[in-house]
């Protein structure tokens, strides 16, 4: 299967291969069933090494597809903190409600320009949230390790009792009555996809 995709130099907008042969990785995007390059560089085909038990629920075909990505010549991979990414940060200011920090690295890659972050008092630890004191947790200049978090609704039922479909980040729609309701919709992270799916099957 690898022979279909050539490890050539690609330029943005150039077709690499059909989306049925590979999955789109860094520096590529999918359009009309084909994978295109979005950066200038050499294409790399990688097979996922960690075929853990977590992939059990997804079809075998999808997991066996190689990932095609385009690597630029310059070694400046642009990283920005995403939800769920592990970051190393330095505390810049502390007050009773929250601490501010500047993010130094994201998922073991050093960022070129610092991003700022905020740690709310209740997010410092998982238990005894009322007793947390920011002043006893962090001081200015401390280097911390943290995970970027986001909360939100994954499954919601409408007034009519049907399972709603998210239509935007703050709205969900009932498929039967077409009524829209406000919700803070979650951005589902890859590691939770398998976590949510079996639950939904139980309910249906």
């Amino acid at each position: 299967m690898e022979s279909i995709i050539s490890e050539d130099t690609y330029i943005p907008g150039e077709k690499i291969c059909s989306a049925s042969h590979a999955r789109s990785g860094h520096g590529t995007y999918v359009r009309d069933g084909y994978i295109y390059a979005s950066l200038v560089g050499k294409a790399k085909i990688e097979r996922e090494l960690n075929t853990k038990t977590e992939n059990k629920t997804s079809p075998q075909q999808i997991t066996s597809l190689p990932i095609v990505s385009v690597k630029t010549l310059k070694d400046n991979i642009v990283v920005i903190p995403h939800i769920g990414s592990l970051v190393i940060a330095k505390i810049t200011s502390v007050n009773p409600r929250y601490a501010k920090c500047s993010i130094l690295s994201v998922n073991n890659t050093i960022v070129k320009e610092k991003f700022s972050g905020q740690i709310n008092r209740k997010d410092v630890r998982a238990t005894e949230k009322d007793k947390i004191e920011i002043g006893k947790s962090f001081r200015c200049g401390d280097v911390i390790i943290a995970r970027v978090i986001s909360l939100g609704v994954v499954i919601a039922y409408s007034e009519a009792g049907h399972r709603m479909i998210p239509v935007s980040w703050n709205e969900m729609q009932c498929p039967v009555t077409l009524l829209k309701e406000f919700r803070k919709v979650a951005k589902v992270q890859p590691e939770f996809i398998n976590y949510v799916e079996p639950k939904s099957e139980d309910k249906q």
């Binding site: 943005p12 907008g13 520096g27 995007y29 295109y36 200038v40 630029t72």
Partner: peptide, 11 residues
């Protein structure tokens, strides 16, 4: 933009 390594759909 290409030099900066920002992903684009096409030229």
């Amino acid at each position: 933009i290409i030099d900066a390594g920002i992903p684009i759909k096409d030229y």
